[in-house]
Write a protein that binds this DNA or RNA. Structure first.
Lengths: 183, 183
DNA sequence: GCTTAAACGGACGATATTCTCCGGTATGGT
DNA sequence: ACCATACCGGAGAATATCGTCCGTTTAAGC
């Protein structure tokens, strides 16, 4: 039998992910040694948890997309009108911005199959919002899930140098919804 | 008296900028040696034209923003309605995408004063579009230059992994304009 | 408690990147 | 044509980063 995982191992993995997020969001080229230091662990520990730099970047992306998927499913479980669902999706994506690390931060998009699977889940969920919204008459008939996902991806990551991104993104969301609304 | 600049010097500087654009757009972390090779010059030549890596990145950003400013001024010189001017600005910004290298590519935003001066010029020009458009009744009264510039910045750089960005961005522009239109 | 496997830290070898230096070459001025 | 000088290429010293190894520490199972 294999033993139960050690709690210091689990805690360190978590500390590394948190530190890597903060550090690499600010600068994708930050050396691994800096990530390790920020996490308060040795370099060896970092490399034991993540085979190499790419593995760490992939883990951050998987973690991010799974957060987005969770959010999509939570919205689906409520029974909102189409336009409210899209609004919630966009607002909450922006709100999660600080916890997300996606390819737009300059890292190459991972080809991890787990990532692709989760990404497809997000796609399907948003598709459901949109179809429902067209049926219930709250969204214009030619709106697509593609439109919403592209826009969401654009505002998910703060534009460098812009203060108060939530407010700025909120304004862009309002404009987008004005265009997406039926009629 | 100083001599006229040598033409091989001027040509090499240009070759370096073109190669750096292509190479660093694809991967901001590409080593200087790769840029030099792509440009077909030696490393020494590269460093003679650009003090160091940051200087090269700054030069690319200055070049980019000045292209955008040129475009803004060209639009101002014509006498378009407000909404047409905004449309032109957005479409042409996307069309220039492949020639642009801005901080959203992962490089830190330069603090070069020349860059900031040009950026302000872009701001002022777009402000003029918008004020004019509100006055002529083609743009909604609460639209701001800020709204347009933020949106333009978002779509200027292709989202990684998206095919046919011009088409996708074009669709986002249509949605934006639907929201920006008066009435 | 005691044993044992799992996890840790940080020094270290291998590799990659940056930037400099200098012998040689092409160009502008006369 | 010839000189003076601005420019070139690429080897290589200095530095930075990656990823591994191993003696030590910590936690799980009994």
């Amino acid at each position: 039998m294999s033993r139960a995982p050690r709690k210091d191992g689990i805690a360190n993995r978590e500390k590394i992910l948190v530190a890597a997020l903060r550090t690499l969001q600010r600068d994708v080229t930050a050396p691994m040694a800096v990530v390790a230091q920020e996490a308060g662990v040795g370099a060896g520990t970092l490399y034991r948890h993540f085979r190499d730099r790419n593995d760490l970047l992939a883990a951050l992306q998987v973690r991010s997309i799974s957060m987005v998927l969770a959010l999509v499913e939570e919205i689906l479980s409520r029974d909102l009108s189409g336009i409210d669902a899209v609004h919630e999706f966009l607002v909450r994506t922006v709100r999660h911005g600080p916890d997300l690390f996606l390819s737009y931060h300059g890292a190459p998009k991972t080809s991890d199959p787990e990532y692709l699977r989760l990404e497809k889940g997000v796609w399907d969920g948003v598709h459901e919002f949109v179809v429902h919204g067209i049926a219930d008459g709250t969204l214009r008939a030619d709106l697509t899930a593609h439109d919403v996902i592209i826009f969401g991806s654009l505002i998910a990551v703060p534009l460098p140098g812009v203060d108060d991104w939530p407010a700025v993104a909120g304004r862009q969301i309002d404009l987008f919804l004005a265009a997406a609304r039926a009629g």
